[in-house]
Amino acid sequence: MEIKILRRVLAANEAVAKSNKELFSQHGVLVLNLMSSPGSGKTCIIEQSVEALKNDYRIAVIIGDITSTIDAQRLSGLGVPIIQINTEPFGGECHLEASWVREAALSLNLQDLDLIFIENVGNLVCPAEFDTGADKNVVIVSLPEGEDKPLKYPLMFRISSVLLVNKIDLASVLDVDKKTLHRNALQVNPNLQIFDISAKTGEGFDAWLKWIEAELRKKRQQ
């Protein structure tokens, strides 16, 4: 006997993500979900962004990692709340699920926050599948990774609003064409906002920070 079901497999995650969105809206907090492959500079970008914005805004960071608290320890010097989610106790997952983000968010005083950075697990496949409920997805590609990442991981670039091209200070020693990377990314998603940055030298950070501040204003007006 055949039984028609027609149910989305990740419906549970999608439902929690939706309620996370409502939770963030209620408290007027802007949530940015940063995703990239390992080693593209997520932690460093968050470090520099928090450093630049923390005097004007109340910020917290939620960090996902399969194991280890290395990133959380590194960020603890920033003087803002850091919540570490280790995915290992949940089965060593390679992405953050909406329910874990919710748990982490609820442990923060949301009414006292303007901005939350989520550092997702380093991976360009799975985090794209699991909506966290963040307001905006930000994908990071570092220049040494080459030009073709958008073509290899289209869903990730499709669901993101911003592409940060990091490590542009290395451009002169690399055989990577930034313009081709931009073109590939825009082919996958013409609505992507692209910022070329170096978290090391601070180059290009102004435009990225201005974008965050504009989003913070939009969130406040809602």
Partner: peptide, 11 residues
């Protein structure tokens, strides 16, 4: 972007 269970067959 589909990821759904369409149906199941049971005895």
């Amino acid at each position: 972007r589909e990821l759904e269970i369409e149906s199941i067959e049971i005895e």
